[in-house]
Amino acid sequence: MLAMSTPISLELSINDDRVRASVPAHWTLLELLRYELGLTGTKQGCDKGDCGACTVLIDGKPQLSCLILAANAEGKKVQTIEGLQPAHRKAGGVGLDPVQDAFDRCGALQCGFCQSGMMLSARALLNENPTPDRTEIRQALSGNLCRCTGYTQIVQAVELAIAESTGAEPESPSWSDGNPWKSTTSLSGKNGGDA
């Protein structure tokens, strides 16, 4: 009756790579990414859609890879955290994706477990709306839980990325006496991928 564990052959687009994979029908996209393709940047948190750690972009929209069957990702463009910098470079950018760079400089992490999902949700927001206000940022990140930072530096990081991309003066962060961003120019380029 049941064709137990019979793998199904899938052809997927992951970070603009065409990938052929063969996994059991009951594997989630998260399991395919982590255990078949070795893309462990996508984190396995609650595994039931509560935490957002497994967020990936599907056709540009943040979705939860723990709740999507791998087979249902066929025919769609999947972007994981591993694809963020290559996509930035491919579009003519230098260094890290500005969101990654800003998260780094703002210290928008402690344990880092939520960070992949956070940055992908932020990237999807900025692709759709390059100048969101704080409320829109908080709403866009509201499906990603962070247990360490209290979110302040995460929101500041997104605001820094926005300010630098629009050429605006970045706001002084609440945790700094002076404005560490004030005299810097195109940090995302200088900082490069070596940070």
Binding site: L2, A25, H26, W27, Q44, D47, K48
Partner: peptide, 9 residues
């Protein structure tokens, strides 16, 4: 981790 039981898709 919470895995899905096996099924036919």
């Amino acid at each position: 981790m919470l895995r899905l039981p096996q099924f036919t898709l």
